[in-house]
Every structure is written in structure tokens, then in C-alpha cells.
Simulated scan of single mutants.
Amino acid sequence: MSDKNKLIKVNNQVLKRTDNIISITNKIVNNQISVTKEDFEWWDNLEDFWKKIFNFYIEKVTLPPSPLDEFAFKTNVKKNGLNGYFNGKQLQDLGITDTPTKKELQEILSIKKIRITEFGINNISPLSRLKNIESIDLRQNSIVDIKPLKDLKKLKEIILLSNSVENIENLKELKNLVVLNLDENNIIDISPIKSLYKLEILGLYKNHFTSIKSIKNLPNLLELSLSYNKKIKDLNFLEELKNLKSLSLRDCNIKDITILKDLNKLENLDLGCNNIRDISVLSYLFHIKKVYLWRNQINDFSPLYKLQNLEKVSLGENNITEFIYDELIKNIPESKIYNRM
């Protein structure tokens, strides 16, 4: 190769690296939040509670005098969020409502993860300003209206376990969601989730919906919890969820589990507290590690004998005789067998 050709090749490589650097720089610039006058007006209109929370998340807080407490703050709080260190009274005592500088407000508006649990929150409208946020954990509050989340398009995780949410229509455009936990709410219609194709983890136990066919449109689901929903009539939607690794159907008035036959990637299965008699289908689920079958009407546990990966079995409150129990011990000796919940 001539020196001229070598030079051209080297220059092309340099140009390629330069293009990559420019691309990365552009991404950084594009992700930066430009603070406006409206942003400061938003801050001025916030309740003191939210000012203290946002200041907390940029470590603008009155630290306890003890060096040990300061260490706990810098390690535990930053990792676990407000519930990791503060309770409501501590936030009231140690929180700061000072107006942030432009740089601090930019940092607040750029928050990517927030966790505020057990604070009795019912109004989450201040969160609508956090356009870069990716993860929100608001479990165990008093939230009904989740409309403020509607335009937070970068969200990948929402945890609203144990609130009072009824309508989830405003979630349907959050296409980047991977984790959605709506356990223990008052949801009647779950159809808005049918467009959330990236979902991998979905929690819906203890709600009030009757139809769950919308879930069949979520082929990437790995974990699904539907426990304590006794109005579920049809499990046929499960046929489409071939990638499921964890499924919870505890206390759902289930009798027939034949539909599970082709879910051969399942590793964790909770069928406790139902009306199941026949578990022969489980013999096809070779990857099962943990299975919960307590409080059913099962007489024959032999299908479990074929499950070589089984680690834990819960069988309490079935028709288990001493003979059956001895057979279980003999045929699945590597498993921990719990003759109770």
C-alpha cells in the first residue's frame, strides 16, 4: 500500500472517531435541561413539602450534627431514596425550602430517579416537570390521579404499589416502560397497557378488573403478578406469553391450569389458594425452581417428580397423607418441601 493510501486510511479513521465524538457531544448537549423563567415560577409555586424533597435529591439538606449520621446520609439515602433515611418528621425538620440557583434547578429538573414511599402523597403534579426522569417509586401513598406522568416519555420504571389509582389511561403513551407495578390499587380497566410492548415486569395483584386479555399483547413479559383478582375468568391470554419466567396467580379461583403447558420458561409459579385438583401439566415445565401449591385440592403430586430443577415446593392445606409426603421426599430429595404456606 502506498504512503498516500495509508494516509487516506488513517485520515478516514480519524474522521470516523471525530464523528463519534461529535455525536456523543450532541447527545450530552441535547439532554441538558435549559432553565427558564417558567421553571423558577414553577419552583415558587411548589408546596414546601416538594421543595424539601427536590432539594433533598440534590443533597441540599440540613445534615444531622453527628459525622456518623452524615455518613449514613451519603451512603444509605442516596441509594434508597427518602424512605431509606428520612420519615415525614425528619423531612419536616431537616428539609430545606431555599430557592435553588440556576445550576441547582437544572440538576433538579434533570433528576432521573426518585423514590418517595409512605409519605401520604396524593398530589404528584410537581413531577410533571421532570422530563428526564426514568424511574419513579411512589409505593404506599394515597395517589389517585396519575395524569402528571402522562408526558414523561423517558420513564422506564413506575412503581405505584398500594395506592388508590383507578384510571391508568394516562400510561398508554409511555412506550419505554419496562417495569410497571400497580399492585394493590382500584383499577377496573387495564386495556391502556396493551401498547406498552417493552414491558418485562408487570404487577397487578389486588385490583378490580375482570378482563385481562390486553396482556396478551405484551410478548416481552418476564414477570407477571395477577394474584388476588378473583374475577378473572379466562387464562387463555397466557398462550401468548412464551417468555414468562415468573407467574403469580394466587387466590384467583382457578380450577384448570392446562393453559400453562407451553410456558416452558417458567421458573417461579405461585398457584396457592385456588381450587386446583390436577397438576399434571406441571410435568412439562422443566425449568421450574419454585412452585407454590398450598391450599388447593390436590391428591396426586407425582408430576413434580420430573422437575429436576425444583428447589422449593409449598404444599400445605392439600390432601397430603404421610405416605404422599414420604413419596415426595423420596422423589424430589433436592427440594425444600413445605407442608404449609
Rank of each mutant, 00 (worst) to 15 (best):
K306F: 15
R250D: 13
N229S: 07
N217V: 00
F286E: 14
L293Q: 02
L266H: 09
R250Q: 15
N274F: 00
S195Y: 14
L226G: 08
I201G: 03
E200V: 03
N207Q: 01
K261N: 13
S248E: 03
K265C: 03
S246L: 06
T210M: 04
L293W: 02
R295N: 09
K290H: 15
Y205H: 01
S225R: 14
L310S: 04
N268K: 11
L293C: 00
I188C: 03
L260V: 13
Q297T: 06
E200H: 06
S191M: 14
L204N: 00
R277I: 01
L235S: 09
E240D: 13
K312F: 13
I288H: 04
G272R: 03
I188V: 11
D234V: 12
D251M: 13
K265Y: 07
I232K: 07
N207W: 01
K198L: 15
S195H: 10
I187G: 02
S248Y: 09
S248I: 01
N236Y: 14
N217P: 00
L269K: 10
L285P: 03
N253A: 06
I232L: 11
K216P: 07
K206G: 02
C252L: 09
D256G: 07
K242L: 14
E311M: 08
I187E: 04
I279Y: 04
K255E: 13
L235W: 11
I212Q: 08
N275A: 06
N229M: 07
N243Q: 12
L263S: 09
I276R: 06
L285A: 12
K312H: 12
I254H: 02
K265W: 00
S248R: 01
T210G: 00
D251Y: 14
F286T: 13
D251S: 14
I212S: 06
E223Q: 10
K289S: 14
L221D: 10
N229P: 01
T210D: 01
H208K: 11
D270R: 02
I254M: 02
K265F: 07
W294H: 15
L307F: 08
L221F: 10
I201V: 14
L249F: 05
V291K: 10
R250W: 11
Q308V: 11
P303K: 09
Y228M: 00
I288Q: 03
F209K: 01
L235F: 08
N236R: 12
I279L: 01
N264A: 07
P219D: 05
K194N: 15
L222C: 05
D278Y: 05
L266V: 05
N253C: 07
L310Q: 03
K242D: 07
Y197C: 05
Y197I: 11
Q308C: 08
E267H: 11
K213G: 06
V291L: 14
S248H: 00
N236E: 15
C273N: 13
I232Y: 04
H208A: 10
K255D: 07
L226D: 12
N207D: 10
K216E: 15
R277F: 00
L241S: 06
E200T: 10
